[in-house]
Computed example of a mutant assay.
Amino acid sequence: MNIAGGMKMNEPALDLAIVMALMSSYKDRPVDPRMLIFGEVGLSGEVRAVSQAEQRVREAAKLGFTACILPQVCLEKMKPVEGIKLHGVRNVREAIGLL
């Protein structure tokens, strides 16, 4: 994956966002620019938990994001965050269904 500016990214939480960007292009359906997407994706398509999920969502809400797709397991451990709608997913198929 080519990241703007040639940056190297070693963050597993980017996996789901990359998959969604590819599927967005394939299906010709843009991802809402106000939507945050994060989660680690396993080889069988499962979406795994990532660290600091609640902090990520709170910061995104402060920056004006209005929706978030995140691992279901993270959502179950979080309190609701005002101003941002949370969509928990267990696998890539569920995430693609939200496009």
Rank of each mutant, 00 (worst) to 15 (best):
M1F: 06
M1N: 06
M1E: 08
I3N: 10
A4Y: 05
A4P: 12
A4M: 05
G5F: 05
G6N: 09
G6Q: 09
M7R: 12
M7A: 14
M7D: 13
K8N: 14
K8P: 14
K8G: 12
M9P: 08
M9R: 07
N10F: 10
L14I: 11
L14H: 09
L14N: 12
L14Y: 09
D15Y: 06
L16M: 08
L16A: 07
A17I: 11
I18M: 14
M20P: 14
A21G: 15
A21D: 13
L22A: 12
M23P: 14
S24G: 08
S25R: 10
S25G: 08
S25Q: 13
Y26L: 12
Y26E: 15
K27P: 01
K27L: 00
D28C: 04
D28S: 11
R29K: 10
R29C: 00
R29L: 00
P30Y: 01
V31T: 11
V31M: 03
V31N: 03
V31E: 00
P33C: 08
R34G: 14
R34V: 06
R34K: 15
L36N: 01
I37L: 10
I37P: 13
F38A: 10
G39P: 05
G39H: 02
G39K: 01
E40W: 05
V41H: 02
G42M: 07
L43Y: 04
S44C: 07
S44M: 08
V47Y: 01
R48T: 04
R48V: 07
A49P: 15
A49Q: 13
V50T: 12
V50W: 07
A53F: 02
E54R: 06
E54Y: 06
Q55A: 11
Q55D: 13
Q55S: 10
V57Y: 08
V57T: 06
R58Q: 14
R58H: 07
E59T: 11
E59D: 13
A60V: 07
K62P: 09
K62N: 10
L63Q: 12
L63R: 12
F65L: 13
T66Q: 03
T66R: 03
T66Y: 01
A67H: 11
A67T: 08
C68Q: 11
C68M: 13
I69W: 02
L70H: 02
L70F: 05
L70C: 10
L70R: 05
P71L: 02
P71R: 04
P71Q: 05
Q72P: 03
C74N: 15
L75H: 05
L75C: 11
E76F: 01
E76P: 05
E76M: 06
E76T: 03
K77W: 01
K77E: 14
K79F: 05
K79L: 12
P80D: 03
P80K: 00
P80E: 01
P80V: 01
V81S: 09
V81K: 04
G83C: 07
I84C: 09
I84L: 08
K85L: 08
L86R: 03
L86D: 09
H87W: 04
G88V: 09
G88N: 08
G88H: 14
V89N: 00
V89R: 00
R90P: 12
R90Y: 06
N91P: 15
N91C: 15
V92S: 01
R93N: 02
R93V: 12
E94Q: 12
A95V: 05
A95P: 13
I96Y: 00
I96A: 00
G97E: 00
G97N: 01
L99I: 10
